[in-house]
Simulated assay, not measured.
Amino acid sequence: MKKLWDISPPVDASSPVFPGDTPYTQRWAATLTEACPVNVSAITLSPHVGAHADAPLHYDPQGAAVGTLELTPFLGHCRVIHAIGAWPLITTAHLQHALQDLPERVLVRTCRQMPLDHFDTQLTAFDPQAVQHLADLGVKLIGTDSASIDPADSKQLPSHQVIRQRGLRVLENLWLDNVPEGDYELIALPLKLMRADASPVRAVLRELP
């Protein structure tokens, strides 16, 4: 069996959300009793809770919903690059040591330990020029352990706009604490939510042959 790394943080009522976003809540619509053979729950959450894929609709009023996206960018050869301590912005210089023969998917670890119990208002974001450079190298998907590829207080979202202009896909809130730098197979498929601006993913890395 090839080794797997589960890079999805736990999702429950304690999961951090962007300030003002909808947190995870759960109630039981049915519970196991002599009269009922099953437990059935109902959940409410923002599609940006936990590991998730943004859709163009998130940052473009005319953008595609997540359920319509081609799945290929979310599945295949990827590289994990460490840029720990790169705050406030990941620049090309932080990534340069790992850009040789780059696959189409790049995941960047920015935290020594991902905050699982609070929202990090000082999250590490991407310099939009670094996003442009990755796109120039043929990258189709960028992932991060931050909650956003732009600063938490950004209103213009310049890195998201580069993603939009260059047709890249993005994964956020990945749990990369225990993942060494190197190449892996990424599996992080979004749900087929036909009107949503994002989707939760169960993201995993699998060792290459």
Score class of each variant (00 low, 15 high):
H77E: 09
L205H: 07
S148I: 03
M114A: 09
H97I: 03
H160G: 02
P128V: 06
D136Y: 09
Q100L: 13
D197K: 14
P200S: 00
N173G: 08
Q96W: 09
C78H: 03
A98K: 09
P103Q: 05
A152K: 08
H77S: 07
D145M: 06
R166I: 07
P190T: 01
D101E: 14
S148T: 07
S159L: 04
M194C: 08
L141W: 11
Q132W: 10
P180Q: 03
P10K: 13
H48C: 10
L102Y: 00
F18W: 07
D136I: 12
R164Q: 13
N39L: 03
G143C: 10
A30E: 12
L141N: 00
A64Y: 02
T72Y: 06
W5D: 13
Y184C: 06
Y59R: 02
P56Y: 13
T31P: 01
H77G: 03
H58G: 12
E70N: 15
A196Q: 11
L32C: 06
A42W: 14
C78R: 02
I7G: 04
I149K: 14
H77L: 13
I163K: 15
L157I: 07
G76I: 06
A130C: 08
S148M: 08
S199N: 04
Q100S: 14
L205I: 05
E34H: 07
G50N: 07
F74E: 07
P151I: 10
L137R: 11
H160T: 01
Q62D: 13
T144L: 13
L208F: 05
I43A: 10
A125R: 09
L208Y: 06
L123G: 14
T110F: 11
P200C: 00
P9C: 00
Q62N: 13
P200Y: 01
K155P: 00
R27Y: 05
P103R: 10
L176Y: 01
W87F: 12
G143F: 12
E185P: 05
L102P: 09
Y24W: 07
L176T: 02
L189G: 04
L174S: 01
V170E: 06
S46M: 03
R109P: 00
V66I: 15
L89P: 10
D127V: 13
E185Q: 14
A64L: 06
I163C: 13
S199A: 03
I187R: 14
R164F: 09
T68C: 02
D197L: 05
K192G: 04
E207C: 14
L141R: 01
D197Q: 12
V170W: 09
D145C: 07
D136N: 14
L4Q: 15
D127T: 11
D153E: 14
L205A: 05
L32R: 06
P151F: 08
L176V: 06
L4T: 15
V108W: 13
